[in-house]
């Protein structure tokens, strides 16, 4: 079977934006100095809040080591998904791009784990008639729903003007019931599992 796009533009992995390595080091360091972490002053007491005398905002007490999930972290979660027809990642194919990921409200150390956070990912299919756009979108949605906390609402859309049937694809990807049913389809589930194999 011919591929929809036999010669896609490919980006070099080393040129893709990522925070992966840095995060790994950071977490190793954090575990080494657990005691330090426990003993040191909460971050909210350092600048620019150090001039506020003991805040009565006790809720943020145990949140001070939690980093907010930002666009880069979302990108790192989905850029490693494999394209269903090329042996390349969605990041390499520029199907997912950091500027096309939007989080609202913008990332901050949210005190309330119940606060709804919307993650909007606009994907760019490699060509305008890519029949696999829905499958790719589904992969992105499934990956993020598995990886993100339950207060995140994931919306995956086709980037405007990059696909001939973007309204139809968008509506399918937004339909919870269709997504749930799709995941019970053995064939489709197999394709998705293969795409997500390369995610760590």
């Amino acid at each position: 079977m011919d591929k929809d796009n036999a010669n896609p533009t490919i980006l070099n992995v080393s040129e893709l934006p990522t925070r992966r390595d840095r995060r790994k080091k950071a977490s190793r360091k954090a575990s080494e100095s657990k005691l330090d972490a426990i003993m040191r002053k909460p971050q909210y007491l350092s600048t620019p809040f150090c001039d506020i005398p003991w805040s009565d905002d006790t809720e943020s007490d145990d949140d001070f080591t939690v980093e907010p999930i930002d666009e880069q972290e979302v990108y790192d979660l989905i850029s490693t998904i494999s394209d269903p027809e090329h042996p390349l990642s969605l990041g390499q194919l520029a199907v997912v791009n950091l500027p096309d990921i939007h989080i609202s409200p913008s990332p901050s150390v949210a005190a309330d784990p119940n606060t709804l956070t919307r993650v909007l990912v606009k994907i760019t299919p490699t060509i305008t008639h890519c029949s696999l756009a829905t499958v790719i979108g589904l992969g992105v949605r499934v990956r993020l729903e598995k990886a993100l906390p339950p207060n995140y609402r994931v919306d995956v859309m086709i980037k405007e003007g990059t696909h001939s049937q973007d309204d139809q694809v968008n509506k399918q990807l937004a339909d919870k019931e269709r997504v749930a049913a799709a995941l019970e389809n053995v064939t489709l589930k197999g394709v998705l599992d293969k795409m997500l194999e390369t995610c760590v």
């Binding site: 609202s104 409200p105 309330d112 119940n114 606060t115 709804l116 956070t117 919307r118 909007l120 609402r153 919306d155 968008n170 509506k171 937004a174």
Partner: peptide, 13 residues
Amino acid sequence: MPPPEVGVEEDPS
């Protein structure tokens, strides 16, 4: 499609 903004829930307290 739902509107672009997600409701920011108020403090549950």
